[in-house]
């Protein structure tokens, strides 16, 4: 219990740190938000008035305290370009991103775990080598190239899927596969190691000595112990996904927070980029926390400690 409390406190501190760095980056930015709000024709007096109204003439730490206080209340600031609350822009687009991430996780697990298990069972054979080269290729392929190639082959040439957009299951397939390819590469490698490790354990030898059928040993004894630690890794991989959705959503025109961030990059709309960064950081911290808390439940040999 004390560990969990400590862990929660630590996560909260990390988020405070993230908000501080994010704010410092915003503060360092050469572009002046007051100029953007006031417009080019504004007089020096108007600019000063707006600056004073927004509190931008205050010292750095006073400004940060105000920023932090509004963050705590869920206010991520206003977009300069879209003239809307960043929090409502993000909230409107979050469901699409969550759907894409969930589908991406399904793809990487289904393919990654399968490849890893097959490689482990065929350890040392040509199949094993071919699968591991595949997983290396998957982690070395830039996501935007994978996305554009899938689009070209399956949407433009074959016409099996729509070229982009959002709405039906057919729209989801290519973006989800693109997002899942990278994870498939990592997970197949981890799954292979984990499976080889489990197959070496004494209890597997005992099960064999008892004369249990190979399939029973594999399904009942080896699989659960090899797969569960890999599942816990998903929490740690949220960062990978957060970077991935920016690329995948911009390639496929998927209306999620990644595309929001990408459009904000093109227009140098910093509050949105900052907002998406903060939301992603929260997701990463939460994912890590869950992974830390779940791992000892899965494997009691790992004790909760710091």
């Amino acid at each position: 219990m004390a560990y969990i409390a400590k862990r929660l406190l630590f996560s909260a501190l990390i988020l405070v740190g993230v908000s501080f760095i994010t704010f410092a980056l915003l503060y360092l930015l050469p572009a002046d938000p007051v100029r953007q709000i006031a417009g080019r024709s504004a007089t020096a007096q108007t600019v000063e008035n707006i600056r004073h109204q927004l509190g931008l003439d205050q010292p750095f730490f006073v400004q940060y305290a105000r920023y932090f206080w509004s963050l705590v209340q869920g206010d991520l600031g206003r977009s300069y370009v879209q003239r809307a609350e960043v929090s409502s822009l993000i909230a409107a687009r979050l469901p699409a991103s969550l759907l894409l991430m969930a589908a991406g996780i399904v793809v990487e697990l289904v393919f990654g775990l399968t490849l890893g298990i097959v490689a482990a069972l065929r350890r040392g054979t040509a199949t094993d080598q071919a699968l591991m080269i595949t997983s290396f290729t998957a982690v070395s392929a830039p996501q935007f190239v994978v996305g554009l190639l899938l689009l070209y082959v399956f949407a433009v040439e074959l016409g099996w899927f729509p070229i982009g957009g959002y709405g039906t299951f057919a729209h989801l397939v290519l973006p989800a596969v693109t997002l899942g390819v990278l994870g498939m590469g990592w997970y197949s490698r981890m799954m292979r190691s984990s499976m080889i490790e489990v197959l070496r354990q004494d209890y597997i030898r005992t099960a064999r000595a008892k004369g249990l059928p190979r399939l029973t040993i594999f399904v009942r004894h080896a699989m659960p112990n090899a797969i569960l630690p890999i599942i816990a890794m998903i929490g740690i991989d949220i960062g990978l996904f957060m970077s991935g959705i920016v690329v995948v959503e911009s390639v496929f025109g998927w209306p999620g927070i990644g595309q929001l961030a990408w459009q904000a990059i093109q227009r140098v709309d910093i509050p949105i980029i900052m907002g998406v960064t903060l939301v992603s950081a929260c997701a990463i911290v939460l994912g890590n926390l869950l992974a830390d808390l779940v791992t000892p439940l899965i494997d009691p040999r790992i004790k909760l400690r710091d």
């Binding site: 990390i14 960062g239 957060m242 970077s243 920016v246 960064t277 992603s280 950081a281 990463i284």
Partner: peptide, 8 residues
Amino acid sequence: MAFPALLL
């Protein structure tokens, strides 16, 4: 580490 690399 809590920052997503690409967004940072």
